[in-house]
Design a protein around this nucleic acid. Structure first.
Length: 518
RNA sequence: GCGGGAGUAGCUCAGUGGUAGAGCAUCAGCUUCCCAAGCUGAGGGUCGCGGGUUCGAUCCCCGUUUUCCGCUCCA
């Protein structure tokens, strides 16, 4: 089956079985926003817990944090998001290329300057040593004409930028006959401002209000709390701060189901290290994070590192862990060496000293930072797309049967155990209910007595329940039940009193990570 | 944002210029069954939304929105 078809089936399956719904669907939906349904929220929470426990519980030098989504506006000036996230963009309709409108205009200005330089170059050749560039610039007609154009252009452009006048910016592009470098045409769309940050107002009255942003990343909440955590937690380098939380980006093109959403959840850890040791720790986390992904047993061949050739301004090393989604290898997690850029910026903008006193070296310095940043929603998509399977089962009459099954790792599955009475009489439902009442404090259990037993198994296959327990007539005699494993469909007869320990053992993630020397 | 495909019941889809159908799913009852699709019955859709053409539009036209793919973009 084509990958595209698999993806479509997966999306349908997510909706049909209560994993993911489109946001505000009754109102036709809201683009690139999704809601997690009754099973989706369980899976998502389980993934989050798996990450949290792997980072915080298993590393004594990593602690948690939950910073607010609202932050002081200066945070985003310091981080560079305010400047870097708001470019006026324009498209050429013929070449379909997108440009920053300000860059197009700057290029045009550079062309005028190049013309002047050409004139000056020619004149210098002509006049030799006696050439006076200053005088030439002031008197030559062609140079002056171009200089006027430059001045006019600069003036208009500056004014338009200051006024946020996008219509004027487009008019400048039209007036100066700026054409697309690729198609050569001047068939432009309107200029649009794309600020990737959502903004809103804080304060009860309009006058006293000030613009604040919904955070476009969670990392800054950690950086501005670095000193608080380091001092109150008596943390010594190297140490990390982990946090999960929502982030918001007004993406121009947000697509591919929950892969790129406007509201999404990140799971991040910022690891503070001594300057000069960052590469060692970069390698350490790179390795460990890959192990974590592979602990899910989705196949090592479905993961790869993608090293960044072009680094962001704050980074001196960066790699992505990519997973093979139905639409190809895509980033799930980024491991970045962010240097001391962020802490230094906050030091600069806040005027506060944000450093670490190293008792071993007996000196203060700004720590370097290794970041591991993973998209929870992408992780969700990874888990569910790797688990989705349509298995062919040969039937006794020779035909084939399709079994739709989510092969979720047991410790991530929403429902851990379903309990069925084989028939709904002879007291079997009561026994099934009592088993659930006993175990519902330990894990999510569900009861089902509707339809044939086979149908009930299949229903739970479709939502990924790893274990189905069936109460039959033998149960009334010897207190045993059958436990049926989702993937193998094999059944085993066990004592009711053993159920808790059997399932507990199988839904514990400890065994996954112990083998990995995590 | 550009180009292309799609939008009819919870899901997958059929259908016609005269106000809608199937399979699965759901619910109730029968059946009492260890791997879906046995029997009987029921509920559920202003055919994505708005406008136009028409006596009449789910169907034709225009717009819009959502979604998938490609390009583009992506701290």
């Amino acid at each position: 089956m084509a990958q595209e078809d698999i993806f479509k089936k997966l999306i349908s399956h997510c909706k049909e079985y209560g994993y993911v719904f489109q946001s505000s669907e009754v109102y036709d939906g809201l683009a690139a926003v999704y809601d997690y349904g009754q099973y989706g929220v369980e899976l998502k929470n389980n993934i989050k817990k798996y990450w949290w426990d792997s980072m915080v519980l298993l590393h004594e030098n990593v602690v948690g944090l939950d910073s607010a989504i609202f932050m002081h506006p200066t945070v985003w000036k310091a981080s560079g998001h305010v400047d870097a996230f708001s470019d006026p963009l324009i498209d050429n309709k013929d070449s379909k290329k997108r440009y920053r409108a300000d860059v197009l205009i700057e290029d045009q200005r550079a062309k005028f300057e190049a013309k002047i330089d050409k004139e000056i170059g020619k004149a210098r050749k002509r006049f030799g040593d006696s050439f006076d560039e200053q005088q030439f610039r002031e008197t030559n007609q062609r140079v002056l004409a171009n200089q006027v154009k430059i001045n006019e252009l600069t003036e208009r452009f500056t004014k338009a930028l200051n006024d946020d006048d996008l219509v004027e910016i487009k008019q400048i592009i039209i007036d100066y006959e700026i054409s697309c470098p690729v198609s050569g045409t001047r068939n432009w769309t309107d200029v649009r401002q794309f600020n990737l940050m959502f903004s809103t107002e804080i304060g009860s009255t309009a006058e006293g209000a000030s613009t604040i942003y919904l955070r476009p990343e969670t990392a800054q909440g950690i950086f501005v709390n670095y000193l608080n955590v380091q001092k109150t937690g008596r943390m010594r380098l190297p140490f990390g701060i982990a946090q999960t939380g929502k982030a918001f980006r007004n993406e121009i093109v947000a697509r591919q189901f929950i892969f790129r959403m406007r509201e999404f959840e990140q799971m991040e850890m910022q690891f503070f290290v001594r300057p000069g040791e960052e590469m060692k720790w970069f390698e350490f986390w790179k390795d460990l994070r890959m192990k974590w992904h592979q602990s899910l047993n989705f196949g090592a061949e479905n993961y790869k590192f993608h090293n960044h050739e072009k680094l962001a301004h704050y980074a001196n090393a960066a790699t992505d862990i990519e997973f093979r989604f139905p639409f190809g290898f895509r980033e799930v997690e980024g491991i970045h060496s962010r240097t001391d850029f962020d802490l230094k910026q906050h030091e600069k903008f806040s005027g506060r000293k944000i450093q670490y006193f190293d008792p071993e070296l007996n000196e203060s310095y700004t720590p370097y930072v290794i970041e591991t940043s993973i998209g929870l929603d992408r992780m969700f998509l990874q888990v569910i797309s790797a688990s989705f399977d349509e298995e062919e089962i040969p039937k006794e009459n020779g035909t084939k049967d399709i079994r739709t099954v989510l092969r979720l790792p047991a410790f991530l599955a929403p429902v851990k155990m379903a309990v069925f009475p084989l028939v709904k009489k002879d007291g079997l439902p009561d026994i099934a209910r009592s088993i659930i009442n006993e175990l519902k404090f330990d894990f999510y259990c569900q009861y089902d007595e509707k339809d044939s037993i086979g149908k009930r198994y299949r229903r739970h296959d479709a939502i990924g329940t790893p274990f189905c327990v069936t109460v039959d007539h033998q149960t009334t005699e010897d207190q045993t039940v059958t436990i049926r494993e989702r993937d193998s469909m094999k059944q085993e007869r066990v004592k009711i009193e053993e159920l808790r320990s059997i399932i507990r053992e199988k839904v514990n993630f400890k065994n996954k990570l112990k083998d990995l020397d995590f």
